[in-house]
Computed example of a mutant assay.
Amino acid sequence: MIRHLVLFKLNEGVSRDEERVQAGARAFAELKGQIPELEHWEHGWNITDRPIAYDFAINSAVADADALKRYLEHPAHQAAAGQWREFATWVIADYEF
């Protein structure tokens, strides 16, 4: 199994209450039902107020490297990530477990 973690940081001046940000969060929420490779799917807003904290996180798992590739290339994933490119940056970690 491969764990795929993504931490998003909203760009300066962007609020999670903005409609475009909420639409981006909804787009990620809908991925679980659209991409069969996703064996585990969690997402949510950070609940702490610390300077080093990121704003939004995705925690997912897929079976193997081929499944990760299919997930990343899936049109629904590409569309959701494309929305976030407009208002956030992110870091990822992919590891086997």
Rank of each mutant, 00 (worst) to 15 (best):
Q22D: 10
E19A: 13
N11K: 15
A67R: 06
V91T: 14
W84L: 01
A79T: 06
N11R: 14
G33L: 03
A67C: 09
S60F: 05
M1N: 13
L72H: 07
V62M: 05
A29S: 14
F97R: 13
F97D: 10
F28C: 03
R70M: 01
I92C: 14
N46R: 00
A53D: 15
D66R: 14
W45G: 12
V62Q: 02
Q22C: 12
E18A: 10
Q78I: 12
E18Y: 06
E86V: 13
E30Q: 06
S60D: 01
V91C: 08
E39L: 13
A53T: 09
H4A: 05
Q83H: 07
L38A: 02
S60Y: 05
E18H: 04
D49V: 05
A25D: 06
E18M: 09
I92F: 12
G33T: 01
E73V: 03
L68W: 03
A57K: 03
H74L: 03
I2H: 10
L68F: 07
N11D: 15
D64I: 08
F28D: 02
F8Q: 04
G13T: 01
Y54W: 13
A25P: 06
E12N: 07
Y71F: 12
I35L: 02
K32Q: 11
A53C: 13
I52V: 14
I2R: 12
A88I: 03
R85E: 08
V91W: 06
Q83T: 06
W45D: 11
E42D: 13
F56V: 04
A76L: 04
D66Q: 15
